[in-house]
Amino acid sequence: MVIRHLLLSFALAAICAGPVLSNELRAPEEVLSDLIEKNESSYLTQSEQNIMMMPDNAALWLADEGKALFYEQRGPNNVSLETCDLGKGPGVLEGAYVELPRYFADTGRVMDLESRLVYCLTTIQGFADDDPTVSTRHGSSSDMMKLQTFIAAQSSGYAWNPPMEHPLEKAMRDAGEVLFYRRAGTSDFSCGTCHAATGKRIRASVLPDINRPEEWTKAISWPAYRVGQQNVRSSQHRVRGCYWQMRQPESIAGSDAAIALMSYWTDAARGQPSILPDKKR
């Protein structure tokens, strides 16, 4: 079984590597328990049940399916995605996701995982924009979620490290910060209303604080299986959901506004290990 194989290699890596470094593949449940051990955070510990179920996370199955899709010859061009460059060279997946969003010279844009995948699916495999492989962005049964979960899992345990060398990366991150704190709409909310203080709750749910990288890493560790929705969800799905709850307009996937926001929120978790795939309420 590929999952068992994956877990075995995580276990072997853990045994062989000795002291844990921030840049090696680690099983998500191990990353989380390590974070909990080192940090006092009611956000990280809020669901004992979810923590217990991490090794049986349904998102691990999706990562398996995504792996098969990634290496399969598909689309009008009948080629695999092995030449897809996610920022660290064609086909290099390990540690690639924690360095997104980043600037890509071939498009002249800062791109997140989802927009980069769309680019690879359309330019390499030749899928049309309205092909369900490209256009269906949400739900565990979508190719998009399978591929995103597989690719992201190849960074589990790696420290978030979005590059800021290119001026556009910095510009997008800074605009994302403005978007994060920008109050608007009929409820006067911004992302900062809920995510700029530690240990606060909405109803019974503990909120993650963007000012605490050690808990914010879990907040941005998408894809994650959302127990309440029984689906694996993406970063973009979280952004859309937050704007919906804030009573503000629908965020458009792949737009520079969405990518800027992700640039800021990824930068805020810099240095902390990713938990991929994660499991959330």
Binding site: M172, D174, A175, V178, I252, S255, D256, A257, A260
Partner: peptide, 11 residues
Amino acid sequence: LAEYLIFEAGG
């Protein structure tokens, strides 16, 4: 840039 991304760039 944030205003541009919201109102002019299809965000």
